[in-house]
Design a protein around this nucleic acid. Sequence first.
DNA 1: GGGGTGTGCGCG
DNA 2: AAAGCGCGCACACCCC
Length: 553
Amino acid sequence: MHLIVSALVDAVSITPVDDSGAIGGATIVSRAGFGDAVRAHEAARPRWVWDDTNNWYPALLAAGVRVDRCHDLRLCRAILRNTHASGAFSPSELPLDAWDAAPQEAVAAPAGAALFEFDDHEAAASAPDPLTEFQRQQAATTPRLALLLAAESAGALVAVEIRHAGLPWRAEIHNDLLTRTLGPRPRLGDRPVEMERLAREVREALDAPDLNPDSAAATLKALRRAGLMVNSTSKWELSEVNHPAIAPLLEYKRLARLMSANGWHWLDTNVRDGRFYPDYVPGGVVTGRWSSRGGGGALQLPRQIRAAVVADPGWKLIVADASQLEPRILAAIAADRAMAAAGASGDLYAGIVQVGAVTTRDEAKVAMLGAMYGATTGESGRLLPRLARAFPRALGLVEDAARSGERGDPVATWLGRTSPVPASDWHDAQSLASADGASAAAQDRARGAARSWGRFTRNFVVQGTAAEWALAWMAFIRSRLHALGGESPLMESPHLAFFLHDEVVIHAPAEHAAAVDALVRDSAEAAGQLLFADFPVTFPLTVAVVDNYGEAK
DNA sequence: GGGGTGTGCGCG
DNA sequence: AAAGCGCGCACACCCC
């Protein structure tokens, strides 16, 4: 059963649509009464169909109402809009409309505020009709796409729940770490003492008394004046150079990064009441990965400060990450049994060595990454032919994806998320280069652009399918955590607290840690089954039950 | 002072 | 200075 949620000027309508598509009579509830209505319907496990999970779910959670399943019309439209694998009717032929909107920020209702107040009643009243859009999407959906839309929508629920619960964060531990590394918190605009000390060392070593090491251009100039043959101030190039200025400069850069990305200002603006609230954007990346928004930088949380993530007293963090997820995904979508078998022992790279494709684990890893990213030169490019001999199906699949991209054709993930096609200037460059009398420079440029797009489509099928697996994994985790915690509120029972592409952190009472460990592994297996049925690919996890995130890995 | 671009670096 | 994918952000620096 689907329940279509539609915002009216001062109320909400709920319209049932049964599995045959028959539309029932709408119920109108007041905005204040919506939470109770949802709670009452939940016993029957309907799928809530609404314009945007961010518009509804934060307030429901704030009112203590959990939703089991939903269909996020905006996210699903974005997938269907682009797909070439649609059913009877393709939204890609529709003109752009309000359903193609950019993601909205998820904002929980402030404490005590009335539920579901719209600032702009006009906007609410003139919103496009969710029922019509839902029917359109149903008509455009194949069974595979239906799986993707369900996974995407489950992800939307997870993202809001994580933001609601937050990641436990001990500000005093973070502060101690900053003070130990940088010195005491400086006044606004001042450098911390450790950075100032290193800046002085750099200036002396380069004989550049006024140098501001924050300026890449000025630093490069000073380095060259000191006789150093470098073309940038990036750390990997500097680390090749032997000069007394280099060590303090690299250390300065390390501290400057910590200070500006995750320093005291970050702490002030992103941690409150012992929690960091990640702001995820499901589907924010073309491949289907999530992105994050705002200075919190949820998907860039450096390892350096993860020790500040500490479970509440009597609770544990269960940190699980999927080992070598992308190569395993590649083995599955290519139905490469040899590669899947190489991963069966638990370490795919060791397995690749074992079948004799390459001689060391490091080689296996660098060759595998090269295959998925499209390396052509260096060690990685050199090892590729050997990998291709051992795993012709897997390598063939990424090669085909690259060729499609080079032609300007789209590619699709396992469940049917389709890559964008290159913009018109890309096509212009290609036709210009193939015309009579095209200059060598124009041909080079076009070839470069074609290969670059080929690397994108090559990676798209793997990264995008891995993102689908991760969504399915989290959907299973979410539902099993709920079964474990019963009807107690989200934050008082085991819950997802963080997500990082192929890794999750669950915050759970210590007595549930073992059960969570088990259900996270079961969920990985279930996600593999859901996507790849009986194909014998495995998705082993590294799971750590810890008090602080810094202890994991 | 706002906006756009380049550099550099964090994450997977 | 990237070989080899996908992101977001801070800062410098330039323009208006």
